[in-house]
């Protein structure tokens, strides 16, 4: 068996007794190392905090809480301890307690981007969209980060504040440069708010850089459809189909085949779409977008009950 080599190597390293492999044996050398260091310096808040984070990441939030309790006693003013406490509470399924802790972080000092973003996420999750947006505004005022722009735009879209969403995405593009996700989000929201020219301009910009992207041509077709240009939309979908076919010929990956399935679906060719999707899922059963698409397709193809 091929692995025999490593067995022998491991055995050899143990036998010679000088192997660095023995420096940190155990399920987590990092955790063990922290254990040792904390045993030596039990009042080191930074070490406690690091172990709490590691324990949380290893799926042991209650062990993390134990560290955080000690850290909090050692330095009751350390905001990072409160933040880690909040994150641990989220992992424990206690969003309200987590939000209180995040608020404590936010109110105790200058704007804390991570705390604001986490609190926005909690607030968005239970529908307090305006509050969530407010947090993200505050975070963006400090740091212009892609995730923050996307999250705020998403909330704006949920609030049906499409003008604000578009403006927010444009603000992000001005700050960050031509991030693809912001451009796609902007194209979508421009389409939704009826700014077809603007949407097409964004998509044309993307297609100028990547002319063979069939999925972006499909988005363009959707804009044309919404603009009442059905024939042009159909022509674009046909173009997308050709591009998708060519891409699969050139690079037969499930990702490209998934785009081909989308092109078929956009043209109303549901069986062909389903066939392509089956091929995708045969190779890539765990591809998230393919699974979602299949569920939608199955639902749409399911026999309808009596009216």
């Amino acid at each position: 068996m091929p692995f025999e080599w490593s067995r022998w190597l491991l055995l050899g390293s143990i036998l010679v007794g000088a192997s660095p492999a023995l420096a940190h044996p155990g399920p987590s050398a990092a955790l063990r190392s922290l254990d040792e260091r904390i045993a030596a310096t039990p009042n080191d808040v930074a070490l406690r905090l690091r172990r709490a984070e590691l324990r949380r990441s290893m799926g042991h939030p209650r062990d993390a809480l134990a560290d955080l309790r000690v850290a909090s006693r050692l330095d009751p003013t350390e905001r990072e301890v409160w933040l880690e406490h909040a994150l641990t509470l989220i992992d424990l399924g206690k969003p309200q307690a987590a939000e209180r802790e995040l608020t404590r972080v936010i109110e105790a000092g200058p704007p804390h981007v991570r705390a604001l973003a986490e609190r926005a996420h909690l607030r968005e999750a239970d529908g307090r969209l305006e509050l969530a947006r407010h947090d993200l505004d505050a975070a963006i005022a400090v740091d212009q980060a892609l995730d923050l722009y996307l999250a705020r735009g998403h909330i704006d879209e949920r609030l049906d504040h499409l003008d604000a969403a578009a403006a927010g995405y444009r603000e992000g593009l001005a700050a960050l440069g031509p991030a693809v996700l912001l451009r796609l989000a902007l194209a979508d929201v421009e389409r939704r708010r009826g700014a077809h020219e603007q949407a097409l301009a964004v998509l044309d910009g993307l297609l100028a850089e990547n002319p063979s992207r069939a999925d972006w041509v499909l988005r363009r077709a959707d804009v044309l459809q919404d603009a009442g240009l059905s024939e042009a939309a159909t022509a674009e979908r046909m173009r997308a189909l050709v591009l998708a076919h060519a891409a699969v010929q050139r690079r037969p990956t499930p990702l490209h085949r998934l785009v081909l399935a989308k092109a078929h679906l956009a043209l109303g060719q549901r069986e062909r779409a389903r066939k392509q999707l089956a091929l995708v899922l045969e190779q890539a059963p765990a591809l998230p977008e393919a699974r979602t698409m299949k569920a939608h397709l199955d639902e749409s193809l399911a026999p309808q009950g009596p009216p």
Binding site: P2, F3, W5, L10, A21, A23, H24, P25, P27, S28
Partner: peptide, 18 residues
């Protein structure tokens, strides 16, 4: 510092050396 906790079943080769 290097270490090996176990043999990963999908690894052909492993060596806990720098």
């Amino acid at each position: 510092g290097v270490s090996q906790d176990d043999e990963h079943p999908l690894m052909y080769f492993a060596e806990a050396k720098n």
